[in-house]
Simulated assay, not measured.
Amino acid sequence: MSYSWFRVVALALAAVVVAGCSKPETPQEVAAEFWQALSEKDADTVADLSTLAAPSAFDGYARDWSGTVPDFGRVVIDDREATIVTRLPAENGVPGERREVNTYLVEQSGDWLVDYDRTGEAIMNPSPFAGLIGEMNRLGERLTASFGQSSDDLSRQMDAIAHEFEAYSDQAQRRAEQAMEEYGQALQGLMEELEESIEEALEDNQRAPERDRSVLQRTAADLNRSSDRLDEPDFDAFADSSRALAEAGARISRLSDDTFKSYKRTWDAKLDEITERTRIFFEELHGRG
């Protein structure tokens, strides 16, 4: 795409000014108009562009947004939900400093609307770690159900959360560091065990169909590459691991011959073990938040 999201939003705002009554359609356009209405204390427009029940319920999130012009960053669209990184002036008023929150949107009856309550929680929540924890809980549910199938959607969310994590305080990052380190080491060990088992199967079954051998060789190579990234675990490495593991599960399930049948049971069990360790990681992370 030749335009950045920033230019897209700027063009959307310009179009609104020219058209007057034209209605925003994309999540980016809706978010831009919502924040403009918020800065103007335009309760009617805020209600029209969000899930706010009625203009009379408008509270401006208990803050004065006059003159606030946010910058918009990464956009993640997941079916009927969207998240837009939104950079706001720092609360301490220091010129040039920005803090990042998420503007959340939902699609209802074909229209994108800002999720008023969820966006407000992201803005007003006093704990810098709480918003991240909520996202990780939702991601954890997806992750535990995703091994063995396509993980493109999951990977996009992991990448988005990695970016969001950078916006949180050093203290919040330190609170998660130990859980991440422990999970990274455990995940790396389990991936290496899976890789070794695949290589053993290839060594023991050199006359297996070439197609299946090629699939398993590629899977072992991907697992090796991805597990190496876990030497320094972070959310980008976890996202890469989720892709490699999900693809491994999908490839294993599509093996055409019964040659590796007994090994497949071992590999499925290892994937289940990884899923369980991942669930524990999210529980530990929540406990440290």
Rank of each mutant, 00 (worst) to 15 (best):
V30T: 07
S39C: 00
T68N: 00
T259R: 06
A62W: 13
D159T: 10
D212H: 04
F58S: 08
P27V: 07
T259Q: 03
E91H: 02
V94A: 11
D79V: 09
A31W: 01
T103K: 00
D42T: 02
F235Q: 10
Q108H: 09
R207T: 12
S66R: 10
Q28N: 07
V101E: 13
V46W: 10
F58G: 15
G93H: 00
L132M: 09
D48V: 04
M158I: 10
Q206P: 02
M191H: 01
E200Y: 14
L190D: 13
G249M: 07
D212M: 02
V8H: 11
G287A: 15
T86P: 05
D117F: 03
G140D: 04
P70V: 00
N137V: 08
G60K: 14
R174A: 07
L49N: 01
L154K: 05
D78Q: 12
S227A: 07
D170T: 06
A167S: 12
A53P: 05
K264G: 09
Y168Q: 11
V16G: 06
M136N: 12
G189V: 09
D64W: 08
E40A: 01
P95T: 05
W267M: 00
N92D: 14
S256R: 09
A220G: 02
V85P: 03
S66K: 11
G120H: 08
E33A: 11
L139Y: 06
E276P: 00
A172V: 07
E203N: 08
A160W: 08
H286P: 01
F58I: 07
R277C: 09
Q217N: 04
N125I: 02
T45Q: 09
W112Q: 03
F238H: 03
A14C: 08
R156M: 13
V215D: 13
G120T: 15
D231G: 12
K264Q: 07
R156K: 13
T144L: 07
R7V: 10
W5S: 13
L285C: 02
E273H: 08
T45G: 03
E284Q: 06
L143H: 09
E135H: 04
L143S: 12
I274H: 03
I161Y: 06
R277K: 12
Q178T: 15
S109H: 07
S127K: 12
Y183L: 06
L223N: 08
M191Y: 15
A57I: 13
F165S: 07
E121Y: 14
R118W: 00
K41C: 13
D59M: 14
V106L: 10
A246P: 11
P126E: 04
R99D: 04
G134S: 07
A43C: 05
E283K: 11
D228F: 05
E107P: 00
A160H: 08
S242T: 11
D64M: 03
T83D: 14
H163M: 15
K270S: 09
L285H: 12
L230S: 00
A162M: 01
E273C: 02
I123S: 01
A239V: 10
R175N: 11
E81Q: 13
E29A: 15
R138M: 04
R254S: 15
F147H: 06
F6M: 06
R63E: 15
L187N: 01
A57L: 15
